[in-house]
Computed example of a mutant assay.
Amino acid sequence: MKLIKCSTLFVVLICLSQSQWIVARSVTKVQPDARFISRIHSPLDCTQFNNDYEILSSFSFVTHLNPIFPSTSQTHGLMDSNENVYNLNIANQKFVPITVFCLKSLKNLYIRNTSFYEFELDDNSIRSLPSEIELLASSLRYLRVHDTAVAHLPKQIGKLKNLQGFLLSKTGLLDLPNSIGNLSSLTSLDMPFNKLTSLPTTLGNLRSLISITLNSNPQLRSVQSLNGLPNLQTLNTSNCPIERIPSNLPKLNVLNMSNNNLTDLVNIRTLGNDTPMPKIFHFSKNRIHSLPPQIGYVRNLVELDLSHNKLASLPSDILNITTLCYLDIRNNVFSGTDLPKLVTMFNTTNPKLILQY
């Protein structure tokens, strides 16, 4: 009888120990939140390095300096005569070393297909650009990240007051912090092929912006935060479900809103009204059902794409645009009798016009 009790107790103890091992094993697999990963390692101490050579030596990969044939698909750096690295391209590595932010003279940082964290994370939506980016506040001019998971930007991004070009492409970016409105030197903002759902109103503070690319953000429905940008010249929002065109962009001369969700072009006369530069406006593959008379007052309009919409008629004002060189009205709903008449009218008023119908 005692033997049976002991055997039973032994089995119970084994089961308990196995269950504890399973629990412990599952706990070790819990993924840390990337927004707090920077706190797992020791605070970055850049004083441990005497020069940029030592910083590069801390990387887990070789960085070729001043290569004869530099390539964006290969990791390399450019060093000046003072032995300061001013350009760094990290491509196809396992992770970006945190010590990269100790390169105090770095002006251009390009990251391609390389994680910002050495930790394996199942959920890319919690990955963030490291807050240590602020250490490059005085030097960094261009930051470009391709094919690398960056779902969020830290508020410290707003400290990069000298940043002129900022690109995040195919990173899974979900949002932009309000602090991005502090990038007073920014002239180019490119966030294509991401997951943005909205834009912060603080983008309206970026008075130096010349170019914005937001194409292929399939959940972005509005760009009204951009209204009033005084120097914006180029805007690309193709392949986004945007429902209204922006307004009060006096310097705009290139606008691509193809494959959006537009139904009209109200306020189009407020686009590029303060510059004589030729205007190129593309609105193909929308749901535009009417064109406002304002179209006749767009200054120096040379190219207009209205193909693949729901237009059944055009305002007479469009016949007065003598600067128009190219007009595409294919795949609309003009009647079989109206379309030939339109063609004849355009041939009469603007014989040099290339008309696609």
Results as ranks from 00 to 15, higher is better:
M1H: 12
K2M: 06
T8F: 15
L9R: 11
L9C: 11
L13Q: 05
C15L: 15
S19V: 07
S19N: 05
I22V: 14
I22A: 15
A24F: 09
A24T: 06
R25A: 13
K29I: 01
V30I: 15
P32M: 10
P32N: 12
I37M: 11
R39I: 01
L44R: 01
D52I: 02
Y53Q: 13
E54W: 06
I55E: 02
I55W: 02
L56V: 00
L56H: 02
S58M: 06
F61T: 02
V62M: 08
L65C: 09
L65S: 04
P67W: 11
I68T: 14
I68N: 13
T72F: 15
G77V: 00
D80V: 01
D80Q: 07
D80N: 15
S81W: 07
E83K: 15
N84P: 00
V85A: 10
V96M: 07
I98L: 14
C102T: 00
K104W: 03
L106G: 00
L106N: 00
K107L: 10
L109F: 14
I111K: 06
R112S: 15
N113G: 04
Y117H: 13
E118Y: 12
F119W: 14
E120D: 14
S125E: 13
R127D: 04
S128Q: 12
S128N: 07
I133E: 01
I133Y: 04
L135Y: 10
L140K: 06
L143V: 01
V145E: 04
V145L: 08
D147R: 12
H152I: 00
H152F: 08
H152N: 11
P154A: 05
G158E: 01
K159D: 03
K161Y: 11
L163F: 11
G165L: 08
T171E: 05
T171C: 15
G172H: 05
G172K: 07
D175G: 04
S179H: 09
S179D: 14
L183V: 01
S185M: 10
F193T: 03
K195C: 10
L199S: 07
P200C: 05
L203D: 02
N205S: 12
L206S: 02
S208A: 15
S211W: 10
S211A: 09
L214I: 01
N215L: 04
S216M: 05
P218R: 12
R221G: 02
L229Q: 09
L232R: 04
T234W: 13
T237A: 14
C240T: 12
E243K: 15
I245M: 11
P246S: 06
N248T: 02
L249Q: 02
L249K: 03
N261H: 14
L265P: 01
V266A: 12
I268T: 02
M277K: 15
M277L: 14
I280M: 11
S284K: 12
S284H: 13
K285T: 04
I288H: 08
L291T: 08
P293I: 09
G296F: 03
Y297N: 10
R299I: 01
N300C: 08
E303N: 14
S307N: 12
S307Y: 04
N309G: 08
S316I: 05
I321F: 05
L324F: 03
C325A: 13
L327A: 09
N331F: 10
F334W: 06
S335F: 08
G336A: 07
T337Q: 14
D338A: 14
T344N: 13
M345F: 05
F346Q: 03
F346M: 08
T349N: 13
P351K: 11
P351G: 10
K352M: 09
L353N: 09
L353C: 10
Y357I: 04
Y357G: 02
